[in-house]
Design a protein around this nucleic acid. Sequence first.
DNA 1: TTGTAAATTATGTAAATACATGTAACTTCA
DNA 2: TGAAGTTACATGTATTTACATAATTTACAA
Lengths: 154, 154
Amino acid sequence: MSLETEIKQTRPFQSESEKCIVNIIYTNNLITIFHNKIVKDFDISIEQYNVLRILKGQNGTPITINGIIDRMLDKMSNASRLVDKLYYKGLVDRRQKETNRRACDVTITVRGEEVLDAISRSLAGRVESNLDMDKNELEQLNALLDKFREKLMK
Amino acid sequence: MSLETEIKQTRPFQSESEKCIVNIIYTNNLITIFHNKIVKDFDISIEQYNVLRILKGQNGTPITINGIIDRMLDKMSNASRLVDKLYYKGLVDRRQKETNRRACDVTITVRGEEVLDAISRSLAGRVESNLDMDKNELEQLNALLDKFREKLMK
DNA sequence: TTGTAAATTATGTAAATACATGTAACTTCA
DNA sequence: TGAAGTTACATGTATTTACATAATTTACAA
């Protein structure tokens, strides 16, 4: 089904680039819907899940709130409060740095890793396994998205 | 700059499809940031802008709230209240249908069209004009996104 | 040292959102 | 006809978000 049909758009897109933008937004929304369904079962939000992923990626090295913001996909959220909520759920640790008492060190807890792994397994099973596209095609899609962003930021 | 570098991810992605998902989310966020900047000047939100676009696409034919929801990219939002806000800004008209008094007919006002056109011009100037990619590449990107969604929904 | 600016995070607040529920209008079918 | 179920939208409410501002610590220049 074409994008125009899916979003029930009557008029054609004015340009291929306009269509690209709408296409990315729409595809992202689909992904979000899938992700939402999955993380809801684990009682955290997508943003909280992303923070856990960042912490796991640190391999034990602590990271500050600013470091988290740097690595967040959606910089709009309030990292302080996201960490706050994860902290009260026992999924992350947070302590003042010694070298800089303004900053704080955040790490993922064992419990946090368990939850993250469970979510990742669930995601892999229910989303990524569906994506039986050629590796070539996926690489091409990634390359084109990279180029798209590069042009957009220029 | 590679996606891994941009989001400062240390570990490599586990699969090309995982990378695709993150890539789409990240690219969408960039688009959102651009769009946000632009519509803010016009004192409406992105969601409200999308509703105006849908109404404009109707070419004068009224549409119900359910019709709007059907066509919305992000079905999560509350269409009633979006229309409400646009109504109080004088950008849309809303009246009870005669054939079905539960339903309501929504149309864009002249003022609404003016605002929409101004935003579209601004977007075209500041976003789409940057996208000087080959038409071929854009078409390919669109096709790959279409396929991606198709697989995801399967 | 001391005053001023910058960095880092936390908090206050208004608005937006998600989700559940309410309400009125319509449909169906015995 | 009229009770039960459905549809279409509005509203209530708890949570989240965006944005501004505060609070604390650090850096640095005079």
